[in-house]
């Protein structure tokens, strides 16, 4: 790990100022000054020499109450970016109103990590692609133009949706799938002031610039997450993985259903473990809307969701697996007692 100087600003303005200015288009992950909150992803990548900040800016003592608050009002749910995953997971309003959010947090990582990790940091976690983590492999995300070792390498855990010839690294987060499904927004503080952005716009597909992972600039700080109110008590997150706990999804599905008897009035679907970014399956939602939800409809929705998927040597199984995961999630969500 490269040596860094450590700073602990006490409010947002000071933190933004501490980050200073960066060259245009420089991704936050390559900036001289980088933020840390829970540390569960940042310290990992610093030890691996992947993230190399010269200055590390600790956000944990920021005094803005909104950053650590969980609040519910008519507009919906407001989650401060410094709220720890475990606290959001257990919050009674979250459990009651948005089971899918609660599930996505509960099934992530481990008890200790959920006690540490901030919600904002969780959303910005970087891929766990083995070739990205080990700096001696060529990787376009770390070194643009170096080549992608995963395309023809051991790519069992890699993405089948949203990839490019430059990068097929999976976005491994769970929470993000619930948020994108529910049309969440993120509130971002920057040198120019504060603004909101649809969560769906936060992450960038790799295309030919896999080093650019988000729409954030280096001094931007996620302040809060806003989830609009909605009829989503019938919702869940299904995570399929190699072992029963403490593992990343091979495939997952965040599903929220608004049912009128057996008929779908509204559906929200996101897919995890199979895509390079948080992945909303809108075409599948549209296909289901107004339909009677049964096995056949669920299968049709799954086929629709994966219509554009493309697999490689070791990850092609994620296409049938992802479909089965979505079918299972849809039918299990339908069966929920709410």
């Amino acid at each position: 790990m490269r040596a860094f100087s450590y700073e602990r600003p006490s409010d947002l303005q000071a933190a933004i100022k501490a980050a200073g200015t960066s060259p245009d288009n420089q991704p936050p992950t390559q900036a001289a000054a980088q933020f840390i909150a829970g540390g569960t992803n940042m310290s990992d990548y610093m030890k691996l020499n992947v993230n190399r900040p010269e200055r590390l800016i600790d956000l944990n003592k920021l005094s803005e109450p909104a950053m650590t608050a969980i609040r519910v009002d008519d507009a919906g749910l407001h989650l401060g970016a410094l709220v720890r995953m475990a606290d959001a997971q257990e919050h009674e309003d979250v459990v009651r109103m948005f089971p899918v959010i609660c599930d996505s947090l509960r099934l992530a990582a481990s008890g200790q990590i959920r006690n540490m990790a901030s919600l904002g940091g969780n959303l910005l976690q970087r891929t766990r692609c083995e070739y990205f983590r080990e700096v001696s492999w060529p990787c376009n995300k770390r070194e643009p133009g170096a080549g992608c070792s995963a395309l023809d390498g051991v790519n069992r855990q890699h993405a089948v949706l949203g990839g490019s010839e430059a990068c097929i690294a999976t976005y491994h987060g769970d929470f993000a799938q619930a948020l994108i499904a529910l049309d969440a927004e993120v509130e971002i503080a920057s040198a120019k002031g504060s603004h909101r952005m649809p969560f769906a716009d936060l992450h960038k597909r790799p295309q030919d610039t896999p080093q650019i992972e988000t729409a954030l600039s280096p001094s931007d700080i996620i302040v809060a997450i806003h989830v609009p109110a909605g009829p989503w008590r019938r919702s869940r997150y299904l995570k399929v993985r190699d072992r029963e706990s403490y593992a990343f999804a091979l495939a997952s599905a965040a599903v929220a259903l608004d049912m009128d008897g057996d008929t779908v009035r509204g559906a929200r679907i996101a897919l995890g473990g199979v895509a390079t970014v948080p992945w909303r399956a809108k075409s599948a939602e549209e296909m289901l809307t107004g339909r009677k939800l049964d096995e056949a409809a669920a299968k049709e929705a799954a086929d629709t969701a994966f219509a554009e998927a493309s697999g490689r040597k070791h990850n092609a199984y994620k296409i049938p697996l992802g479909k089965q995961t979505l079918v299972r999630a849809l039918l299990e969500t339908q069966d929920m007692k709410v």
Binding site: Y6, R8, I36, G38, G39, T40, S43, D44, K47, L48, L56, D58, N60, A86, S110, G111, Q112, I113, N115, M116
Partner: peptide, 26 residues
């Protein structure tokens, strides 16, 4: 040393955390 095993678990302010994933200065 990467938050993958839990052997370094301690309580910080009463909550269990992984001591390998946090810088001491924090």
């Amino acid at each position: 040393d990467h938050g993958q095993c839990g052997a370094c678990s301690v309580l910080v302010d009463g909550r269990r955390v992984l001591s390998c994933m946090s810088f001491a200065v924090m």
